[in-house]
């Protein structure tokens, strides 16, 4: 994800794919943790009822919050931000338009996990935009859910989006479907919808497991244009192989910001980019310290390295 304006270094880095290359290089250079795991803890495990072992997560939250507030204020002061193009998200609108032309429905699946999974929440954020566009185009939207809570929230999301688009009639209760809590029974149910109701577009956004390829291949056979998005690394290759467009990891989480263009949401995407920059610096520092420790095995370097591990 990228943003414009503000920090020129971050702007340069996020504009192109350099950041990804750097992240991969840094991760490749990073020494295995067992090389680093020799020294004893520097910080205590607990301090005044605070779990110090969770300090890295706390620091990530504080950094993100700080970056977000700063960027939010910048944006309020009139700074504009631009997101790099995401072909996968552009394809969503195209997919709905195609369904409209063909007079067939759009099928949306917000993953197979329950509402306590952050990927499901991200999927529902995207559903809101998909439902809005579908309502604008007057195209029926089928939502298939594996969990009943997700179904209930999906109903609210589609109802609200249809109302916001000025077409409350586009919310069709019979198109909001709970199929089964069982993974493969759900898969079989979705396959049935694909083959019988022939949706022109299938949009998979959320957490998926082994059913990913079964769904995507059946969608391919039914002739649908398919857009997938997940942060589940093990399933990404299947979606990449079988779908027309795939949102990978962070792209999937940024999709709703990209679709909404809401500056308050877009600011959070740039804040996430800044946080990534901060972690890249920490990775490089860690690699440098570990290399120094390997070359000059001194207690001070080991302590410094351990401290870095405990803080980040």
């Amino acid at each position: 994800m990228s943003g414009q304006g503000g920090n020129p270094f971050a702007r340069r880095m996020t504009r192109n794919t350099g950041v990804r290359t750097l992240a991969v290089l840094a991760a490749m250079c990073a020494l295995p943790a067992h090389v680093l795991g020799a020294s004893a803890r520097v910080l205590p495990k607990e301090w005044h009822h605070i779990d110090v072992e969770k300090l890295p997560v706390f620091i990530a939250l504080v950094l993100f919050g700080g970056f977000y507030l700063y960027l939010y204020r910048q944006m309020k002061a009139g700074r504009s931000m631009r997101l790099r193009r995401l072909p996968g998200i552009d394809a969503v609108e195209e997919a709905i338009a195609r369904a409209t032309e063909m007079g067939r429905p759009v099928l949306f699946i917000p993953g197979i996990n329950d509402i306590d999974d952050i990927q499901t929440l991200a999927g529902l954020n995207i559903l809101s935009h998909v439902a809005y566009i579908a309502a604008e185009y007057d195209t029926p939207l089928i939502v298939a859910c594996r969990r009943s809570v997700v179904l209930t929230i999906s109903e609210e999301v589609v109802k609200a989006a249809s109302l916001a688009a000025g077409r409350p009639e586009n919310y069709i209760p019979n198109n909001m479907r709970y199929l089964s809590d069982d993974q493969f029974a759900f898969t079989a149910g979705v396959n049935g919808i694909m083959l019988r109701e022939r949706p022109a577009s299938c949009i998979y956004q959320g957490c998926f497991y082994s059913e990913s390829l079964i769904l995507a291949e059946t969608g391919y056979v039914s002739g649908a244009i398919q857009v997938a998005g997940t942060a589940n690394v093990a399933q990404l290759p299947f979606f990449v192989a079988a779908c027309d467009f795939t949102l990978i990891g962070e792209e999937f989480f940024a999709a709703s910001a990209y679709l909404s263009r809401d500056p308050t949401v877009v600011a959070s995407i740039e804040a996430a980019d800044w946080l990534k920059m901060a972690y890249l610096l920490v990775i490089f520092l860690g690699v440098a310290l570990a290399t120094a420790l390997a070359l000059f095995p001194q207690a001070e370097i080991a302590t410094l390295l351990e401290l870095l591990k405990e803080i980040f």
Partner: peptide, 18 residues
């Protein structure tokens, strides 16, 4: 690659959660 995607996804999760 896995680490790079996981780091990006984890930061995305923090942003979405908040």
């Amino acid at each position: 690659g896995q680490r790079a995607i996981q780091i990006g996804a984890a930061i995305g999760m923090i942003a979405t959660g908040l």
